[in-house]
Each structure stands twice: as C-alpha cells, then as structure tokens.
C-alpha cells in the first residue's frame, strides 16, 4: 500500500538516543522515524522524557549518546538555513508582550527567505480581528494560535508542537485540532506533537509513539495500537465456589466455550473485555512508575 520510503522521506531519524543527568537516565535508547507529511504524536506521562527528546531533536540540548538526523542534519550542528526549515511552538512563550499581533508576525516574516503572507496567516489562525491588538491582551487560546502562526510563518517543513493545548477549553482545543489537521493535510507540513493526552494523540496523529520511562514502548497508527491492545481480551466470571476469576486470552471465544462446556450451563458473572488503547497506555504508565519509583525524584530535579 505505502510506496517504499526513500531517505528524503525520513524527516526525523533517531537511533538509540540516550540522555543522562548525573546518575539519572532520562532517555534509555530512543528510536524514532518520522516521515514527511505525517502528524506524529509523542505520547507519555509527565517526566517520561518527552520534552528532553524533543529538545534534542530541536537542537536545544546535547544528547549523551546515539545518532540523530533531523532534516538531514545533526541538530547539534544545525545552522541558520536548517533552523529556517523548522518551526517551533512551545508551551511557555509569553514573549513580545507589547508588540501588536500583525506587527510581530510581519517582523518575524522578514527573517525567512520565502515567508507566508502575514495577513493570510492571521486569517488561517483566526486572528484577523486581533491584528492590531497588543500581544499581552490576547486570551490564552489566541496567544497559542499566534504562536502557531509565528511557528509556521517561515514555511517550515517540520513543526514541533509541545503540549499545544494545555489549559485550553474544549472549543479552543477543537479549533486548534482543525488548524493542525489543515496544516498537515493541505500544506504537507510534518508535525511532531508531544502530549500526555491520549485522546488528542488519537484524534490528530497518523502515528503515535508511547514514551514511558525513557523508552519507546509502542509505536504505530492509532488503529494498529488499538488492535494490538485488544489482542489480549480479559474474561471474568464467578467460579462454582463463588470466587471471582479472571483470565487473559487471545481467543476469548474458545475460553468461554470451554467454560460453558465444563459448567454444562450458564456461567454466573461472565464478562469479556477487550482492552482499549487507553487501558494499555495506563497499564504501561503504571508499570513504569512501579519500576522506576526510586529514580523519579532525580529525574524531576534534572528536568
């Protein structure tokens, strides 16, 4: 179905990337391949290493080990031309508070060889009505849409979105999702999105990677991951002596048939559950939290 990938189609390539702060291993060998034009979600709980991974890819942090290519270059040695092909939307920007919206966007357009038209861009992010407003008078959602406009004014090939909808109300979130979809579908921008919100990742991403405890634990399309998650169904029933029983099975139908045959009648409390992607994700997160309780504090400090 998919044509074979040429190297030019790989926008981000990471092999066995590690990151240690002192004794704390934050990344323990991360592998990533992100292809041109896809929306890729890096999903994980807080402290899993998402931000560290993204900052390594953005060229803002030196990795401890491993190989990274972003748009064909090592981010640690990315020059201005390379920077110009990347767009960034971070969580914590509250810069240029006294600039006017259109003024700021017009100014940042001058840094790029082939910028978008600032007026068209304002229309794209729905800020035409706020063009003359001072940046610090924007609402949280408007400010974030301005950040997106600033992130794409230089026509980036790769756009980083770091937890872009944190603190959004449902409507703002919905509009933001539409904007990201439009960018990816109509403009062919490759998007790397980090989030701890599974629903957002499922909604937006072509592929999802789950980063837990410094490793990619699962990676695939939302459908693939859901199928994999549902492969092991859980069968629950009440045994003859009244104790609740549960068993995991790849073939729950057979297990239920066997139970019926053994009981030779109805089974009390029979229940077959297919785990959702969310169940799997939460299961992974909890298991990792149990594994690494001891090192969590060190990671907090390092981050």
């Amino acid at each position: 179905m998919t044509p074979p990938r040429t190297p030019a189609d790989v926008v981000v390539e990471a092999r066995d990337v590690t990151m240690a702060y002192g004794d704390a291993d934050v990344l323990r060998g991360v592998d990533l391949d992100i292809h041109r034009g896809e929306v890729f979600a890096l999903l994980g709980p807080n402290g899993a290493g998402k931000t560290t991974t993204v900052e390594i890819l953005e060229g803002f942090r030196r990795r401890s080990g491993g190989e990274v290519r972003v748009l064909g270059a090592d981010p640690e040695r990315g020059d201005d031309a390379w920077r110009g092909r990347i767009g960034l939307v971070l969580q914590s920007w509250r810069d240029h508070p006294r600039w006017r919206v259109a003024e700021l966007l017009g100014h940042f357009a001058t840094y790029y060889p082939d910028p978008r038209d600032p007026a068209e861009l304002l229309a794209l992010v729905g800020l035409t009505g706020q063009a003359d407003r001072q940046v610090n008078r924007l609402s949280g959602g408007q400010r974030r849409r301005l950040d997106v406009a600033l992130g794409i004014v230089g026509r980036p090939e790769l756009l980083f979105l770091d937890e872009p909808t944190t603190g959004f109300d449902p409507e703002a979130r919905h509009e933001f999702h539409l904007l990201v979809e439009r960018l990816a579908r109509d403009e062919g921008v490759t998007v790397l999105l980090t989030t701890h919100d599974l629903a957002e990742a499922e909604r937006l991403a072509d592929r999802i990677a789950m980063l837990v405890g410094g490793r990619i634990r699962a990676c695939g399309t939302p459908a693939e991951l859901a199928r994999r998650a549902a492969a092991q169904a859980e069968v629950r029933w009440t045994a003859d002596d009244g104790t609740p029983r549960r068993e995991r099975s790849e073939d729950p139908s057979r297990l239920v048939w066997e139970l019926h045959r053994d009981a030779d009648g109805p089974i009390p409390g029979l229940e077959v559950r297919r785990p959702t992607l969310e169940d799997t994700y939460l299961h992974m997160v909890h298991r990792a939290a149990d594994d690494t309780d001891g090192t969590e504090d060190a990671k907090e400090r390092a981050a």
Binding site: E58, F60, D80, A81, R83, G84, I86, L88, L90, S92, W93, R94, D95, H96, P97, F108, Y111, Y112, L150, G154
Partner: peptide, 11 residues
C-alpha cells in the same frame, strides 16, 4: 519571557 529563545529558534 522567551523572546531570546524565539530568536534563537529563528534564522
């Protein structure tokens, strides 16, 4: 405020 970071990310 992050202005320096934004300019760092800008060619």
């Amino acid at each position: 405020e992050g202005a320096l970071l934004r300019l760092r990310a800008t060619p």
